[in-house]
């Protein structure tokens, strides 16, 4: 057992070749570890493999080689069923869009992971989570009747109600304006401060600057690691990564 929530070792990922093109590795030996309560941001040029890394770390995508453990359990070699169980016991997700099942109300979406895991979840827990994201009055709305930012906050409420050990977020503020972004980031920060870990992919410098640690990905490998950087630090590191690519 380690005290890491998430641990990755020499993760590589290669997609099968498309149209006779030689397969290019998308991830080339990424190793990282995330502590409980840590907020880690992953930045990098477009196409550098950020989303792929996130999906590999969360077990949604199979690795080509390497090891990933969540909450001390190695994902490789586990059956899909066992992986699904780890996901629902330890992992939460926030995507850029389509986070919610359209036929379920905000309330039902928040309660869904618990229902899937056949875990009891009290009505108070769900309501409290929705109030925390200031959507207590929208509980019975369907996703189509919520704004993009509100849908994103429902996804966060789902994480708050389920209390996973680690939350993966792929560009959670990608489709939001500054104010809505700030709100979402504040909430993610709160999640981390309450002792759970957050791994977030983003291209928003301000968002990255809210993290405890920023990993700069370039060409499928970790190029730099910044501790508690400012937005300017992230900007410089990214500019450097882009230059190195060009």
């Amino acid at each position: 057992m380690t005290d890491h929530v998430l641990e990755a070792q020499s993760v590589t990922k290669q997609f099968p070749p498309v149209d006779d093109q030689p397969p290019t590795p998308v991830l080339r030996g990424v190793s990282l570890a995330v502590f409980p309560g840590e907020f880690v941001a992953i930045v990098g040029p477009s196409g550098s493999g950020k989303s792929t890394l996130l999906y590999c770390l969360s077990g949604l995508e199979d690795l080509t080689s390497g090891e990933v453990s969540i909450a001390g359990r190695r994902l490789s070699g586990l059956s899909r069923r066992a992986q699904a169980k780890i996901r629902r016991d330890h992992v939460g997700f926030i995507f850029q869009s389509y986070n919610l099942i359209p036929s379920l109300s905000a309330w039902e979406n928040v309660a869904l992971p618990a229902r899937l895991a056949k875990r009891a979840i009290s009505a108070e827990d769900v309501s409290r989570a929705l109030h925390q994201v200031s959507l207590g009055d929208r509980a019975s709305h369907k996703p189509s009747a919520l704004s993009g930012g509100q849908q994103q906050r429902v996804a966060i409420a789902r994480v708050l109600a389920t209390r996973p050990d680690i939350v993966f977020a792929d560009e959670p503020t990608g489709a939001l304006d500054t104010e809505a972004s700030t709100q979402v980031l504040d909430l993610l920060r709160d999640v981390a401060d309450s002792g759970r870990s957050v791994v977030m992919v983003t291209h928003d410098l301000q968002a990255a600057a809210r993290a405890d640690r920023v990993l700069v990905l370039r060409d499928g490998a970790i190029h730099r690691e910044l501790l508690r950087p400012t937005a300017d630090d992230v900007f410089d590191a990214l500019a450097h990564a882009r230059k190195a690519v060009a």
Partner: peptide
């Protein structure tokens, strides 16, 4: 096509293939 997206979301939320 809409079904595909819902299935993807369910799996991310921790549903097993069986569910």
């Amino acid at each position: 096509r809409t079904r595909e997206r819902e299935v993807a979301l369910l799996v991310a939320t921790g549903a097993t293939w069986a569910t």
